[in-house]
Design a protein around this nucleic acid. Sequence first.
DNA 1: AACGCGCGTGACAAATTCATGACAGTTGCC
DNA 2: GGCAACTGTCATGAATTTGTCACGCGCGTT
Lengths: 229, 229
Amino acid sequence: MATTVLVVEDEAAIRDMIAMALERAGYRARHADSAEDARAAMRLAHPDLLLLDWMLPGESGLDMARSIKDDAQMSQIPIIMLTARGEEDDRVRGLDAGADDYITKPFSPREMMARVKAVLRRTAPTLTEAPVEVEGLRVDPISHRVFANGDGVDLGPTEFRLLHFLMTHPERVFTRAQLLDNVWGANVYVEERTVDVHVRRLRRELTATGHDGLVQTVRGAGYRFSARD
Amino acid sequence: MATTVLVVEDEAAIRDMIAMALERAGYRARHADSAEDARAAMRLAHPDLLLLDWMLPGESGLDMARSIKDDAQMSQIPIIMLTARGEEDDRVRGLDAGADDYITKPFSPREMMARVKAVLRRTAPTLTEAPVEVEGLRVDPISHRVFANGDGVDLGPTEFRLLHFLMTHPERVFTRAQLLDNVWGANVYVEERTVDVHVRRLRRELTATGHDGLVQTVRGAGYRFSARD
DNA sequence: AACGCGCGTGACAAATTCATGACAGTTGCC
DNA sequence: GGCAACTGTCATGAATTTGTCACGCGCGTT
């Protein structure tokens, strides 16, 4: 999936210039012209980066940056602030609000792209994954921990990846071969029945914490993660 | 201690002009006329800022800037690039390489001083990081000291950086490769197992002061700093 | 009711992954 | 120059994890 950049800027000319440069570089660009619009767009497009204008009608870009960095769900998304001011005082305030970089207008598409790439490179590993939670069972890829209603669950590396994969693709049946590809990795030779064993090990841990029936067997097809029976 | 600026420039006239202006303004100036010299000077004088000429005999200033920004120990030191060229292309490359500002020759001592002061002011908060404290274990980046419930803990440079990095990113697992990038610096080739050894050395010191279990091993994933088990 | 599969289980031995202690090369400091 | 502090590597042994089997149970079909 292409990297998506959300451009929050009310001046159409600048916004289009940026969007064009981004798309020419192979990124997917989305835009919003106010903080309110931006929040809606973030929920829809799940951008990997925000280009946020300092001056916006209504809620300022600075406030928005601050609120995003305070939100556990979105705090991982890097932000580059755009501003017409050149005072470094502002720069400090911007960085202080959680911005990852800062571009002073006027700027060239080229400079902008250089910074976009730099920020993405710097934060790439970070935005990979958010915690998943279903019925009190929470898997957090960042801390690499699993909690069942608050209590820690001890899983081996493979069980962890298996559970995480299934939870991020709920209600969907995967054949053993598909699971091997996605959890073990492509071109890895292991018996398909090995999946059964790991499912069993995973279930054993989950059952011990009262979470039964989440990893379901679909006879003749494979396994599925689902909250309902 | 006076703020030290290292001037890396092979043309004596320019170098002296800069050094004189800096000293008149109360800074301590050191100089080098090649990247090799500069590295030696950095180890000796621990400059707070680098004025780096783009064109140097041997390794270019651009390459040097990049390698410094990749080095965990020196990446905090701000860099101002000096160049005879005015192409924006160069400007982008310079900023991309990690430079904090950019001065085009010819320039006046006055302009240079303004930029030097601006960069130092701007990066001050970065270098002056706040102390981090968790469960009585305090790491103070400013004094470069660690205290466990008031008692000083003696750590080597690498252990200090490792602990500080982990403490500023709690509850998050880092692979050995990520730790090497962030604590040792990118482009530094060391065996991944070396991380284990430093973790052990760090743990040994922490355990001696009663702080066990803070640096945790996540089998198959890496290490994590966390207050809870 | 018998049978054929598909799947759950417990047991294992091999393969990984880590913690540790020892060592030698460097560096900075007396 | 010599000493002390640091670093990066290795070898070793212990602790987990992993991939396979073999065995049986149960479901659906005949």
